[in-house]
Design a binder for these strands. Structure first.
Lengths: 111, 111
DNA sequence: AGGGTATATCGTATTATTGCAATATAATAA
DNA sequence: TTATTATATTGCAATAATACGATATACCCT
């Protein structure tokens, strides 16, 4: 097999898994960090910044766009990518809801 | 090809990517949520809870253990797994540092 | 129109991940 | 000791992800 059994899990669990994939590759983390710093940028910058081929970066950008965490607007020949603040907040909240489910560390000395 | 070029990215970027993988599969999210609820639990419970084979769950548990987000102690025939609170806090902080890099949404209307 | 530039997509090779049956290992119980 | 139970590991099949060259697409400029 090799297929994730999506139907076995809740909507929230699947949503978190999809969002987490945005951060599950260092190149995508680097792209996100670059967008955060630049507060808008273009694909070409990223090819310079990271050491990956143009096709590879374009592919990562598409994945991030599919997840919704970034958005791009055509700007002449170039495409300006930036963080989608609404989706960003959504993902941030989703993760924080999970993170905050662990009370104070002292109460969890089970093993 | 097909190999992540780890050396191209910073330590922090790689660390985030590794940590994110813990959440990048719904089964692992489900396991983590179960551990948070139960505040300790055993593999057998999870086989009941999720609909996956014992071998598959054991594999996910190992991945989570490798990431360090959970820990297991042998308890007779069984193994008690629980969240590693120290690593949990570490990952939480790592993500929050990233999440908080986006200022107020209004300042980011670049595209 | 024709050339240059920026990005996307396609095709493909390679490695990673997912899933499970079968088997191994280890502790307990009888 | 032998059987039982719980978990880990192995081996394998199938799908997903990563990476990149080649090519397509789309926009700009002359």
């Amino acid at each position: 097999m090799g297929v994730t059994k999506t139907d076995l899990f809740s909507k929230v669990q699947n949503n978190i898994a999809v969002a987490a994939k945005a951060f599950a590759h260092p190149a995508r983390v680097a792209i996100i960090e670059h967008l955060l710093r630049a507060n808008a940028c273009i694909n070409g910058d990223l090819v310079q910044e990271l050491g990956l081929a143009q096709a590879t970066i374009s592919q990562h950008l598409r994945e991030l766009k599919d997840i919704g965490i970034i958005q791009g607007t055509i700007d002449g020949v170039r495409v300006s990518y930036c963080i989608n603040p609404v989706r960003w907040a959504e993902i941030k909240n989703q993760f924080n809801q999970l993170f905050d489910q662990l009370e104070s560390p002292n109460t969890n000395d089970c093993c």
